[in-house]
Design a binder for these strands. Sequence first.
RNA 1: UGGGGAGUAGCCAAGUGGUAAGGCAGCAGGUUUUGAUCCUGCGUAUCGAGGGUUCGAAUCCUUCCUCCCCAACCA
Length: 563
Amino acid sequence: MSDAESKSLNFLEEIVEGDLQSGKHGGRVLTRFPPEPNGYLHIGHAKSICLNFGLGLKYGGGTNLRFDDTNPTKEEQEYVDSIEADVHWLGFEWKARYFASDYFQKLYDFAEYLITQGKAYVCDLTDEQTREYRGNFHTPGKPSPFRDRSVAENLDLFHRMKAGEFADGTRVLRAKIDVNAGNMNLRDPLMYRIRHAHHHRTGDAWCIYPMYDFAHPVSDAIEGITHSICTLEFEDHKPLYDWFLEQDVEAKFFQKPLPRQYEFARLNVTTTMMSKRRLLLLVEEGHVTGWDDPRMPTLSGLRRRGVTPEAVRAFAERVGVARRDATVDMGLLDLSIREDLEARCDRRMAVIRPLKVTVTNLAEGEIHWIELPNHPDAGRGTRKVPFGRELYVDREDFMEVPAKKWFRLAPGAEVRLRGACYLRCEKVVKDASGEVVELRCTWDPATLGGEAPDGRKVKGTLHWVSATHAVRAEVRLYDRLFTVDDPMDVPEGGDWRGTLNPASLDVVQAALEPSLGEAKAGERFQFERTGYFAVDADSKPGALVFNRTVGLKDSWAKVEAKA
RNA sequence: UGGGGAGUAGCCAAGUGGUAAGGCAGCAGGUUUUGAUCCUGCGUAUCGAGGGUUCGAAUCCUUCCUCCCCAACCA
């Protein structure tokens, strides 16, 4: 990173630094990450987490994890657990963990206060009528016939709502603001609705639940949040956020200065989607194996694929923070992953699609154990790899009619087998259907180790595995989940599911060098010339399973594409 | 036809009146027993468009255009 880049602050950092300088919050910085526990965290949330926790860390403050659990019909403990695990995995520690439901009593007390101030009223309109009265962008709203109930009546009704006297949907508590406001959020928004539902934390203690717009600012204020950061779509909720907090005119509920909301653009990434609802559909309809399917943009999916938290954080850093809608190329995530894995992974040889090679001038049973470095950087140790008469190379590394600039195996061509020797293809064996099933080759014993004493050069170096020593493993080759940049951009009447990539998963039986036989779930390797792979949770000794985390950059593919 | 945002190279993104950072992608080389990594070089971006203010504008004013969000008893 250059100096110029490291010095430029994003607009939120500028705001925080400005507040720090003016002493607005007495030098305090407290942010919060407020997920609703109704789904798994995805890469878009990662941006928000890195932003919120990053600000807390950078300015010596902290960040609260607060579950926004105000809707009992959608939220579950399972999601609470996964979210906590994901935040920890990403590498962040919250200063405190709260639930909006921790504040149900305080919220209720404040609502009661607003009623006594004539700022809130109980409304008996049905949801349909409420919508009608609210009007739309072009027509002003009409005041609810219940708008002018007396404080005493409102108080009584509100108490009885809480006591469970009324059925779901029969009454709501509304803020009395402005039924004609251009900002629809201000047309007497709902504060409470009746829901005789079991809440994952408060059980059956409540049958009225606060709405987000009421609960969120109040929760922020209770916790003493200084900067409440959310995404752009909440921008026109800000007047409401401020309105609620400003109604505490006697300062009986909150301490000043009040928290302030700031918005940034949410993250979009090509060839995937962040909609929790649609992600859920992918799971439910079986397009993926679960929330942690390695093709999912969820943190649990990325983790299972073998992505490290460091890579995700680096990605979030690169993506930046601004207020304009943006869609980042998935390639940027790939790059961040490769960059991280390049340094940390030991190298191994694995043949993804085995093609048999017989070294005809090598005696049966003659084995050379070759010592190979674990990493280009010295000091990372070595391991031994057996070289014998029967080998496998990747089918992709052989071309019967070589293309221009093809450096790999072809009839008569000589290549290097990584760490072993020079090898020349003498004969191609095909089966009845014409498919190439074996290459008969000769090696040059003088090149043992991989270099020719006579100085002759070879352009291609191939990975290989001894067939007699190979460890078999299932390898899951993952690719983009969708075939188009924006899966939602489908023609009229089309279904986004139609853009799902039918080849997003390719399962193959690979042949690995024997040292990989001991690989444990979670371990990561670079399979030389192929990509980065992680041992899947499904993996067992004797039945190994590897996930392709990301492929290596492939400049041959580019040459080929241009031809 | 209401309210709120945003428009800087293919994708992100700095810049806040003094004459356009950086990253990614792309292109061209070099090193290389991974066509990986690494290294070097390469961009005149009508700063959405027009008009204006100014010695000077991506930055100020003005008109216009385009895109995004808002009419859940969701968050």
